[in-house]
Simulated scan of single mutants.
Amino acid sequence: MIIPGISVLDLPCFASDFPAIDQLRITFSASDLQLSGYEADDILYEGHQIVSELVGTQSVTFAVNLGTRVQDVEKLVQSAKHLSEKYFCANSSKPIKENFVCGPLDKISVHLTPREAFFAKKRRVRIEDSLGEICGELICPYPPGIPVLIPGEVVTHDSLSYLMNVRQQGITISGAADVELNSISVCNL
């Protein structure tokens, strides 16, 4: 079954030597609908009372287990169709959102070792004012659970844009003292 704007992760998505995927997990993306995984998850939960297992910036994963009934899967399919009907045409004329999945990890500049940054004097600045500063803490959005900034790394335009996008989406932040990401700790030099 094809639902416009919804793509489902399946075995052909991987290289030919990939052994298998967990068939008890259904992962789909609504990015063609201009929806993040978080937005799609919120709509499915609030509008259809569907609870996901894991949410990412671009996808939502659902678990099928012993308690899952045929009606539950049918409800998920109908809810995905509803997402498509509501957002496919409505968002087709909107520009595609920037995708920052790997961008902040492409170019890094480290001016202090993590140890030097840990022991350096620090100050807290608004996240908007951190460009070019040396990060004094670990900032790790979850998922995917990969640090965007580590102590000693220079805050770049790419990492700052990514973090502001993450903050807007309400993604969980670990490591940072300010989990709301209104401010970050930077090193005094």
Rank of each mutant, 00 (worst) to 15 (best):
R123N: 06
I108P: 05
P141I: 01
S93F: 09
S130E: 03
L83Q: 07
I139P: 00
R124D: 04
R126G: 08
P143G: 03
D129T: 07
I134L: 02
Q78T: 15
R123A: 04
K75M: 05
S79M: 03
K81M: 10
D129N: 06
V77W: 10
P141Y: 01
I108H: 03
L131S: 01
A90C: 04
T113P: 00
E133N: 05
H82N: 10
R69L: 01
V110A: 08
L131M: 02
R126E: 14
V70Y: 11
V64H: 01
Q78H: 15
D72L: 00
R115V: 15
D106H: 11
K107C: 07
L76A: 04
A120D: 08
E133W: 04
L105G: 06
L112M: 14
V110I: 15
R124Q: 11
R115Y: 15
S79E: 07
A120Q: 12
K81H: 10
V73S: 02
V70A: 13
E74L: 13
Q71F: 07
A117H: 00
E116Y: 02
V70F: 09
I127T: 08
R124K: 09
P141K: 06
S93N: 11
L76Q: 08
R126Y: 07
I96S: 11
T68P: 03
G103N: 10
D129H: 06
K121S: 11
F100V: 15
E133T: 08
G67I: 07
E116H: 04
I139A: 00
E128S: 09
K121F: 01
A117K: 05
I108V: 12
K121R: 14
F62S: 02
A90F: 10
L66T: 13
R115N: 14
N65D: 14
A63S: 14
K86D: 07
L105V: 05
L76I: 11
F88E: 07
P104A: 01
P104M: 04
N91Y: 01
S79L: 04
P141V: 00
R126I: 10
L83K: 11
F119M: 13
Q71M: 14
V70D: 14
V77Y: 10
A63N: 12
L112I: 13
N99P: 03
N91M: 05
R123I: 10
D72Y: 00
D72W: 00
K97G: 05
K97Y: 04
L112H: 08
F88G: 09
I134T: 11
A90E: 13
S79C: 05
K107I: 13
S130H: 05
C135P: 03
K81P: 04
H82S: 15
E85C: 11
S109W: 10
